[in-house]
């Protein structure tokens, strides 16, 4: 018992080591939040891009742009899904941003945002495809434009259908940011490694980090559940 108290003391209190954890949590949350936002943005764009198709009889420039958006989105998704996250992060850190003096957190947001976007894109695409063609036709027959039909009719229903999958992706992303601990040494995982290198003891720092991640995910899940319940309002019978 005394040993555990000593360990906890060494991990959190001595030399104010708790501040390492606090700033680690702060960075993890910050990186996660902005990476989720960037991932969503890229995901929606790439998801719509992959759905874009060449249509006969349309203005040639639109047709060409659709084709380009489609190929570009497919290439992006293909490359990101085909290579390990750790490799992508390392490449972005040590090759692309190697000689640029930029906040490491921004690099992390870019790296994880790009990574997540590819997965979000496929989720968005599946969501849009899950909405029957009749919904689009009903919207268009009223005189709504393609964009209005997308924003007011298709997307709200698609988001509702894909929320579980999207929530999953957000959770995976928050946890994956732990990889950054090995590269940029600024997040929660890095705090644990930092402390453990000083105390020469693994158990308490690592288990503490596990508990903190668990609590963060728990809170995120809670919010996702609330959101889902709100969207399910129209399912009442």
């Amino acid at each position: 018992m005394d040993g555990l108290i000593q360990e906890l003391y060494n991990t959190f209190i001595r030399e104010n080591r708790w501040t390492l954890f606090v700033s680690g949590i702060g960075n993890t949350l910050l990186i996660s939040l902005f990476a989720v936002a960037l991932g969503m943005l890229l995901g929606v764009l790439a998801g719509l891009g992959k759905l874009a198709e060449r249509k006969k009889g349309r203005f040639w420039l639109w047709s060409a742009l659709s084709w380009f958006a489609n190929r570009l989105s497919a290439l992006y998704i293909d490359i990101i899904r085909g290579t390990p996250t750790v490799v992508q992060i390392t490449v972005i850190y040590f090759i692309i941003f190697a000689s640029v003096d930029i906040d490491k957190r921004i690099v992390a947001v870019i790296a994880f945002g790009i990574n997540s976007g590819a997965y979000v894109a496929e989720i968005i695409r599946s969501g849009i495809l899950s909405i029957s063609k009749g919904q689009t036709e009903a919207g268009r027959s009223l005189g709504l434009t393609q964009a209005q039909t997308m924003t007011h009719i298709v997307m709200p229903q698609a988001i509702k259908n894909i929320l579980p999958a999207l929530g999953n992706e957000f959770i995976v992303l928050v946890k994956e940011t732990a990889v950054i601990g090995y590269v940029a040494k600024i997040d929660l995982m890095a705090a644990a490694m930092n402390v453990q290198s000083r105390t020469y003891s693994y158990v308490v720092p690592l288990l503490s980090v596990a508990v903190i991640y668990y609590v963060i995910i728990k809170i995120l899940t809670l919010f996702l559940n609330l959101w889902e319940r709100k969207l399910r309002k129209s399912d009442v019978r």
Binding site: E137, A138, S141, Q157, K160, L231, S234
Partner: peptide
């Protein structure tokens, strides 16, 4: 022109 469909196609949300 207003259009009415076989499957109604009301917006469920």
């Amino acid at each position: 022109m207003g259009m009415v469909f076989q499957q109604f196609n009301l917006f469920p949300h």
